[in-house]
Amino acid sequence: MKEVAVISGKGGVGKTSLVASLASLAAAGHRLVLADCDVDAPDLHLLLHPELREVHEFRASHKAFVDPESCLQCGRCAAYCRFDAIHAGQVDPLSCEGCGVCQWVCPVGAITLREELSGRWFISSTRYGPMVHAQMEPGEENSGRLVTLIRQGARKVAEREEAGLVLTDGPPGIGCPVIATLSGVDLALVVTEPTVSGVHDLKRVLDLCQHFRVPAVACINRYDLHSEGTDVIKNECHSRGLTIIGYLPYDPTATAAIRQGRPVVEFPDSHLAVAVKEMWGRLEAFILALSSPDF
């Protein structure tokens, strides 16, 4: 089984739309499992319309609770808390890291740590194959571990269903969830666009791939919007020895498809669908070259 993660340094470059289209194309020839690791903005389900099969609770964060009966208001907890999360016996749950230092220093044992519901993760079915995805509680942290859970869930489903490919919609950025998404994947497809922010963020995310030694290929979305920007991306990829497997045009069909909740390849006459199909051919060849017997 091979795991391919689609990532982008910057959000909003069309990553999720592309994953939906790649899922549609891949499912025509392979057994496929989808994983939505973009836990902070999990949008893949809006295009794939999954039917929920399993719901799991995810409890990862601890928060401090003060028993007002025994609290002496001595202020030791506030003095030792490094996260400015406790004052006069009141815990700010949005700042509390659950580290337990307050519990440790409280002279009367008035503070306990409790496990909190952080979110839920799901195993669903879509017309392209099973999908593992999640939803955090508002303002909840710690999506890195949830990403790991989703990937484990997806791998387990893939083993059960004898799927050859796990296709992952990754989170934007370069932080914890991205690192959790990238660690140990077989290939990263980096989606970028020729905007000043796109180019800037591409460099940071490619640095990350190199740091974790993840093989990567790139594609440029809306490449025709700014030819100088596209040239900069080409040079950047070239200097790193990275193959650009797709040049996707600016096409209003992209937005129209999202509005209808469908992958853009379902509009086969559009320029974009044609370009995405060509790109899938190249991506498939790259995955096959990863020499997995079961793909």
Binding site: D40, G139, E141, N142, G175
Partner: peptide, 8 residues
């Protein structure tokens, strides 16, 4: 972007 801890 998002609703995670650094955003809050």
């Amino acid at each position: 972007p998002g609703t995670s801890c650094p955003v809050v």
